[in-house]
């Protein structure tokens, strides 16, 4: 087994202007997603949704700047940490991960032992 992060990149404006109904729908999608993962042979170990990148503060070499590290149209808005036997399984999970205003990136997690 190995760990992977599923990094969710989406258009933040779409969420900023979303109706409460739409937000409910998205939350339900994420609930359905987490419920479906074990059926694919993987486990959700954790994950978080992030506040928009407008709330971000970057620090480089002690210097503090207002804003995200990199300004992009599709910003990192959340992630899952999963455990899966191989990349094919992790990609099957990623394909199921809700990201209607963008997409996801799968990155293996380094195992230190």
């Amino acid at each position: 087994m190995a760990q992977y992060t599923i990094l969710i990149y989406e258009d933040e404006n779409a969420y900023a202007t979303a109706s409460p109904e739409l937000m409910d729908e998205v939350i339900q999608e994420h609930d359905a997603f987490t419920a479906a993962v074990p059926g694919l042979g993987a486990t959700v170990l954790g994950g978080s949704a992030l506040e928009p990148s407008g709330t971000a503060t970057s620090v480089r070499g002690g210097e503090v700047t207002d804003g995200p590290f990199v300004e992009t149209k599709e910003a990192l808005g959340g992630y899952y940490l999963i455990e899966a036997p191989d990349l094919d399984t992790a990609l099957a999970v990623a394909k199921l991960c809700p990201a209607r205003f963008g997409g996801v990136e799968v990155r293996p997690v380094i195992a230190f032992d």
Partner: peptide
């Protein structure tokens, strides 16, 4: 190796 692309027949 690192992303564990499986060595198998799909």
């Amino acid at each position: 190796a690192l992303a564990r692309i499986p060595y198998r027949v799909p």
